[in-house]
Design a binder for these strands. Structure first.
Lengths: 140, 140
DNA sequence: GCAGCTGTTCTATAAGTAATAGAGCAGACC
DNA sequence: GGTCTGCTCTATTACTTATAGAACAGCTGC
């Protein structure tokens, strides 16, 4: 997993770390059980404080994506092909999706362009993007 | 436009206001030229400080969605059916989309479910969601 | 003109967040 | 025993959020 930070970005460092790990999981670069660098190690590699890495890892644990303990270190808990996500997540995730898409629509992006962008991103994660439509069959 | 705030939410008030206005524009509830309440008026209605509303409106102006002046007050500048958005917006918007979709994938949502959620949200905004596929024709 | 609205700008304060830093504890491994 | 690990505590600096009061400048209607 390559982790590049943009210091000087308006998005917090711990958030960038979290997003990078999430992206790596989505991309399948790290599967369930894969170990992540220790907080002190990653902090040293990135040239930042280990408390900042600690915060990012703690966030990932709260989201159920990471298991942390003194025995195994930091290992990925879920992977993209495991069980269903909690309903609470899906609910607030859709609210964020709604906000993001509203922004695109308000800025004048048209529906098909937005939807193809979504599909392209998903296929970039190695996922099938089949939509079943009764009249037309399947579209990949 | 109905504007309900969730004080006690972790998302800042000015951000909630901004998101609500963006959603209203996307939904077509407010079209180009539509006047918005003045900062002091809206602040009084919401029971918050007018500086907070000011910050939200200033954000919307920076995004090109609002025109502010002493003559006309606050009026919507773009509407969903006007010209193309600036390229810089599309670029960083896709980065945010990528992060959001990665989160869903990492949590175990499958590709079709995510894509249909995107399509459903877009049709909720009254937009066509036609994807043209050479082999299959058009899917709405 | 004048009162009342508008956006705009300035200073200020209190609370929270982000990122830094140092120190220490407890468990696991060699 | 030494060294790694996660974990916790206190502390500081800087920035953000939300509040507040005051003032200025331009437009509108009486």
């Amino acid at each position: 997993m390559i982790l590049t930070l943009d210091l000087g970005s308006e998005v917090p460092i711990y958030q960038q770390i979290r997003d990078s790990v999430v992206a790596a999981i989505a991309l399948g670069e790290v599967a369930e059980g894969s170990p992540l660098p220790s907080t002190r190690q990653l902090a040293a590699d990135l040239g930042i404080n280990f408390h900042t890495v600690n915060k990012a890892y703690d966030l990932l644990r709260q989201e159920g994506l990471l298991i942390l303990n003194r025995k195994s270190g930091a290992v990925v808990q879920r992977d993209p092909t495991s069980g269903p996500p909690p309903a609470a997540f899906a609910e607030q995730w859709q609210a964020r999706l709604r906000t993001l898409l509203a922004e695109a629509v308000a800025q004048g992006l048209d529906g098909p362009a937005v939807l193809t962008a979504c599909a392209a991103t998903l296929t970039g994660f190695g996922l099938p993007t089949v939509i079943t439509a009764p009249e037309l069959g399947e579209l990949t």
